[in-house]
């Protein structure tokens, strides 16, 4: 896009950044609030991490301008995220698939 259009877009983004900041604050307060209510641990994990993922998406899309960025950058981060998931998932698979040993978790 032209120089002027680019500058105008930046001007428009200022308000949006403030709104994202407010959204992040609200989400963190919700996160803390929910954490202080005792209920099923597994559900806590899902909700807590879920809120974190939403917050992360907001930061990445708007503060880091991923929304509107070129494909190569998207693919680099997707690849990194994919291999991170592999690291966790396959190691978890290895841990939960131990050959019979009952004491394996008693490190």
């Amino acid at each position: 896009m032209s120089e002027d259009q680019d500058l105008q877009q930046t001007r428009n983004e200022v308000k949006m950044h403030l709104r994202i900041g407010v959204a992040l604050t609200v989400l963190i307060l919700i996160s803390i609030g929910i954490a202080l209510i005792p209920f099923n641990t597994a559900l806590h994990l899902v909700i807590g991490l879920g809120i974190a993922v939403v917050m992360a998406t907001l930061v990445m899309a708007f503060f880091m301008h991923l929304k509107g960025e070129k494909k190569f950058v998207h693919w680099t981060m997707i690849t990194a995220a994919f291999f991170f998931v592999i690291l966790i998932a396959l190691t978890l698979l290895a841990y939960f698939d131990y050959a019979g040993s009952a004491t394996i978790f008693k490190f």
Binding site: I28, H44, L45, G48, L49, A52, V59
Partner: peptide, 18 residues
Amino acid sequence: WHFVELVWIFLFPVLYLL
């Protein structure tokens, strides 16, 4: 800097809340 914030967004619930 935003990445540093991103890491904290995960660190905080994982270490302090969950």
